[in-house]
């Protein structure tokens, strides 16, 4: 069942990944901008079960690792996204008040994006990476949270509609 769900949602993630790598990466925005793919993945995970969140994070992280601009070893984003996907879905699982409230989703994703990037940073430092000045990192993390607040409301109708359509149909089938 999980494999089936994963395979069904994979083309959607592949399209968002291509959009991120080809279009979003053309813009140099304030505070190093935002990652549409990361936001989409966390929002998608927040709407599912913890198992699905972890599996979604695994697939999404694998794609992020395949990006040529990913600086760490293959598997670094995968590991972080598994934990991020699982955690964000675990927080809201079983609580319909949480999932039914768009503001809660915006807030949780806006918090999760900088935290995910911070964990990536810490793990990257452990692997010997260098990431610039503390101030730049701080600005970048804060800006990514703010960009997420702006982007999630635009993405939410699209994501919730596809997510519910896909998984309701599956549960009926």
């Amino acid at each position: 069942m999980f494999a089936r769900r994963f395979l069904i949602s994979f083309p959607i993630f592949a399209v968002i990944f291509v959009i991120q790598e080809t279009i979003v990466s053309q813009f140099r925005l304030f505070g190093s901008g935002f990652s549409l793919f990361l936001i989409f993945t966390l929002l998608w995970s927040a709407l599912g079960t913890p198992e699905l969140g972890a599996l979604t994070g695994f697939g999404a992280g694998l794609l992020m690792d395949l990006s040529q601009s990913s600086s760490g070893p293959v598997g670094q984003w995968t590991l972080i996204m598994i934990l991020a996907g699982f955690s964000i879905s675990y927080l809201g699982y079983g609580d319909d008040n949480f999932r039914g409230n768009p503001i809660s989703l915006v807030v949780i994703v806006a918090i999760a994006v900088p935290i995910t990037r911070l964990v990536y940073l810490i793990l990257g430092l452990m692997f010997g990476g260098e990431f610039g000045s503390t101030l730049q990192i701080f600005i970048s993390l804060i800006a990514s949270g703010l960009w997420t607040v702006a982007v999630v409301p635009l993405l939410m109708p699209f994501v919730t509609r596809i997510h519910s359509g896909l998984f309701q149909d599956l549960s009926r089938g």
Binding site: T22, V24, S25, S70, F131, S144
Partner: peptide, 12 residues
Amino acid sequence: ISLGSTSSFTQT
């Protein structure tokens, strides 16, 4: 053709 990653803290 592309300005690099926005989430990896690298400049490429």
